[in-house]
Design a protein around this nucleic acid. Sequence first.
DNA 1: TACACTAATTATAAACATTACAAAGTAATA
DNA 2: TATTACTTTGTAATGTTTATAATTAGTGTA
Lengths: 144, 144
Amino acid sequence: MAEEKLHEAIDAMKNSGVRITPQRHAILEHLIQSMSHPTADEIYKSLEGKFPNMSVATVYNNLRVFKEIGLVKELTYGDASSRFDCVTTDHYHIICDDCGKIVDFHYPGLDEVETLAEQVTGFRVGDHRMEIYGKCPDCQKSKH
Amino acid sequence: MAEEKLHEAIDAMKNSGVRITPQRHAILEHLIQSMSHPTADEIYKSLEGKFPNMSVATVYNNLRVFKEIGLVKELTYGDASSRFDCVTTDHYHIICDDCGKIVDFHYPGLDEVETLAEQVTGFRVGDHRMEIYGKCPDCQKSKH
DNA sequence: TACACTAATTATAAACATTACAAAGTAATA
DNA sequence: TATTACTTTGTAATGTTTATAATTAGTGTA
């Protein structure tokens, strides 16, 4: 299924007229397979072996491209660096205040919130994001 | 009413054993009165007149203190710097993709989402945030 | 397949927000 | 007043992200 997602993503790139370079392929592959929410630097470091000459700028450039096509979402929390999440099915994130762990959390889309927001504000709504904060099971146990 | 909020905030500081310095008073006052979502630098610049010697570090330090007491929330969007929002009544934000305008948007708290998240993930939930993205009325008119 | 056009990559420098640190100042308490 | 702990200040340092120019590499067409 990761294979399939990758193909879909590559098709999306073709349709948008975006060239498919080895670096882009590798970044996408890593995002899909990692099942996590890596920072740009983490992606850069994890591809060091395959692409010893790849520049950090390439990672940033392509994450921006993927974002523009809609393949990837940028997650900005309070901490230093953004994290990037492959857009697959609708889901939200729940984040541990103590250890920073991020867990995916599926929930029927909040369409009614979007609709009401349109009516109240006059915006044309395209998207929304939500994060839930709390304490993960592990950190609940370790009462310091 | 801004006056009143300020007093409440100052009481909260007293209860938390946090000293009320002129700088803290001014930062809080600005946050409450501005009715916007300023960056740390905007706060710094707007208080330059009153406090010519105030350091940027002071602004950052105190915003962190306010956050810890629960007086202020940090809003991190994709852009360079965080914005800070006085915690008053429950509300969310709707943000224009084009011009970056941020508009408050009231909505009955999503308590049922928090509850479900607890059940599904085992987290103990304390808080959540949501942002809605779209195109504001002004930017809809100016079809580029 | 080779060519030409355009886009992408690289390497580096720069910008920028935020934090760390030490020294000086200030409030609270006894 | 002396002591203590907390705040502010100024500056340096850190770390992420972007800008730039030169080089390299995809892609469509002959």
